[in-house]
Every structure is written in structure tokens, then in C-alpha cells.
Nucleic acid binder design. Structure first.
Lengths: 198, 198
DNA sequence: CTCCTCATGTAATTAGTTACATGATTTA
DNA sequence: TAAATCATGTAACTAATTACATGAGGAG
């Protein structure tokens, strides 16, 4: 989904500045499931303005740049509705460095794996705590639905780590595991516990 | 995480061709949590070969290009171990067009939302069914751990939709919702049910 | 007879990220 | 006094995606 459509969608919830749109994607209604930065938002907003899909009025502010508040035009609304009604969504894309690293747990020091795992769990729990402070009554029906889905996913991850994390670390510490067959132990892995019987 | 490290990690599970590495990321051990295509893999493998982190032997094949089987060199193993041990992982990035669209459910026809929701659920259930056919005994300990985490996440999504999807569609059909305030009904939304009392 | 799998690779396009540039106010 | 928040925007760089180019064999 391109930055322009994302901005259009954000503006459907009311007029906003580029700065505010980014906050929505970072901690607000869209938190977590569609990252987008300034470098994408500002050019998108400029393009949208040139196409007449949004309008903009500047609010002068003391000591900082004018706040540019963008708002959907009727054409912008139509474009959003059309995109949502006819475009088939691309498949979800999930990128996780942590999970990739964890899948190679045997290659790392168990203490390192433990750290990675704890940090990952804490991140998800923090997200959950942050979400608990949001008031679903202030959301639209659609937002509330995906908000609940996000909570379900984060809880599932935290619970899974709580239930299975210790067993992973213990297996690693005991050296009781299948090592990846592509590694033949020729590198300087001074901290890696070897499998019993090697 | 760059394509080179991803390839190094894949090769830790044994020698493989570019084609096979892609399969691992698409349906194998790394399925779902780190998409990567040919356009990233082949150049990465070429660079890795030039750096001496992998070696390669060509297997001639009838009627198709020679299969180039890459394998980690001791330097490649060392590079992988170093990256995994010292690099701090980037935050997870999740991009979901479907979830973004669903958050604007009020802007769409309820039948369209229903379709989107069903397709999304089916995709996750299919993933789950596909995963059920994999044998965890053939995986390394790390792979098995993240495999289980993936299952937990997909189940959580499917269950959430099973439990809450119908209520969303019904609310939409009844017109019983908070519409996004940025939309003022000026576009040609012929199919959208209006909120009672408007 | 068409589509999918196998199999590699380059080139062009597109998009996203990061760094730079500026600067006042508030909070710790 | 350092860091975070508010506030915008451009330029450079990096990376990913898509299309192109080739082609046999097997399944439906």
C-alpha cells in the first residue's frame, strides 16, 4: 500500500498535519501494522495536494514552522473509497530480525539468546500495556476491530514466550539440540556449547 | 536485516542453490517472517562469493541452467556468528494492507468487508494447515521454537476473526457505528449504510 | 494446450530510509 | 543541560520489487 493511500486513510479520521499522521501510524490507531516515516509522508501529501485530493490551510505558529493541516477533498474521499472498494490487498509482510536470529539459536551463546528473547517479550508486553491505556470507545468500529486483533496477536506472542522460552534456553545450555547441519564448527565459536557426543 | 545475512543464515542449514533459499523463505523454515525474492538473493549470493563467505560448485543439469550450489566457508560461518552475536535486531516490521483497509470498514460496502475478512482468515488457516504437515522433528531447536510461535500467531488471528468477525459485519449492516469524522458523505458512496439518526 | 515447477540472472524502476537543515519549548 | 516534543522539508543513498530474457519437463 503506497504512502498516498495511507495518508488518505489517515485523513479519513479527520484533518491532520504530516506530523500528526506519522503519530497515528506510530502510536495511534494504526500503530504497529503499517510503518511509515516523514520521508514518505511529506512527499505524499505534496503530491496529494497537487492532485486535488486534499486541501491544506496553514496555521501560523510561534517559533516553529507553520503547521499545515491537510483535509480530504470530495475527490480525495472518492479516491479513497474507490481504492478500498476495488484494490485487492497485497499479502501481509512480516519482517522480524529477532525471529530470524532466534531460528539460529544454536549458533549463539545461550545467554545471548536469553537476552534476545527477554527483550522481544518485553517489547510486546510494553505494546500491550500501552494499548491497555487506549479507550476503544473513542475509535471507529473498524479501528476497534483491528485494535482487538493487534492485542490478540501481541498476547499470543508474549504467552508463547512465557510458556516455551525457558525450555529453549535450558536445551541450549544442556547442549541438547540439533545443530544446523551447514555449520561444521570450523569457525571460532568459543562460547557455543557442543552437542553431547560430538 | 540485509539479504546477505539472510542467505548466510539459510546456508547454515546446509548447502543450497538460490532457488532453494527462496523456497526456504517462502514455504520452508523461514516461511512468513522474512520475505525475500530472487532479485535480492542472486546478487547477495554473488557478493558473498566475491567476499569468500560462501563457495559454489555447479551441478550440470539437462535442459536447464546449471544448478549452483552454495555452501558456507569457514569465513562465512564466522561472519554469521559475529552478526548474530553482536548486531542488535531491528524492530519487527509488519505491513498489512488488509488490516489497514479493515480499519476503514465503514467506508466500504459490508459485503466487501465480509469478503476481505473471509479471505484473510482463509489465508491464515491455510498457512496453519500447511504448517501442520511439517515435521518439527526435522527442525533444529531454534527453528522449532519460531515455528511454534508462528503457529500461535496464526491461530490467534483466525480465532479472533471467528469470534469477532460476524459482529463487525452485523454492526456495519445495521449502520450501527462511528463513521470516520474526516468523511462527510460528499463522495458517491452509494452502497454505504448511514448511521441511524443522521 | 496451458500452467506450474525448476533454474539463473540482469536491468530498470520504484520506493523507502537516513541524514541533513532549522529551531523554539518543555520536561527530566 | 541534555533530551524529547513539536514541526517541516529536501537530498542522498540504499534496497527491494518488477519486468525482462531463456527454456525444458511434467501435471492437469
Amino acid at each position: 500500500m503506497d504512502a498516498k493511500t495511507l495518508c488518505l486513510g489517515a485523513l479519513a479520521h479527520g484533518p491532520a498535519s504530516g506530523y500528526e499522521i506519522r503519530k497515528m501510524f506510530e502510536e495511534g490507531a494504526y500503530a504497529g501494522f503499517h510503518p511509515i516515516g516523514f520521508g514518505s509522508i511529506y512527499p505524499a501529501l505534496t503530491a496529494l495536494l497537487a492532485e486535488g485530493l486534499v486541501d491544506c490551510h496553514e496555521e501560523p505558529q510561534a517559533g516553529r514552522p507553520d503547521k499545515k493541516v491537510y483535509r480530504l477533498t470530495p475527490q480525495g474521499e472518492a479516491a479513497l473509497v474507490k481504492t478500498l472498494s476495488s484494490n485487492q490487498p497485497a499479502e501481509d509482510k512480516y519482517k522480524s530480525d529477532t525471529l530470524f536470529m532466534l531460528s539460529l539459536a544454536e549458533v549463539m551463546d545461550p545467554a545471548r539468546v536469553d537476552r534476545l528473547l527477554r527483550d522481544y517479550r518485553d517489547l510486546k508486553v510494553n505494546q500491550l500495556n500501552h494499548m491497555a491505556e487506549c479507550d476503544p470507545a473513542k475509535m471507529t468500529t473498524g479501528q476497534r476491530f483491528i485494535f482487538g486483533l493487534g492485542q490478540a496477536v501481541y498476547s499470543a506472542i508474549a504467552t508463547y514466550i512465557d510458556n516455551n522460552g525457558d525450555a529453549l534456553i535450558e536445551a541450549l545450555e544442556r547442549g541438547d539440540y540439533h545443530a544446523p547441519p551447514g555449520l561444521r564448527g570450523t569457525s571460532e565459536r568459543t562460547t557455543t556449547v557442543r552437542k553431547a557426543g560430538e
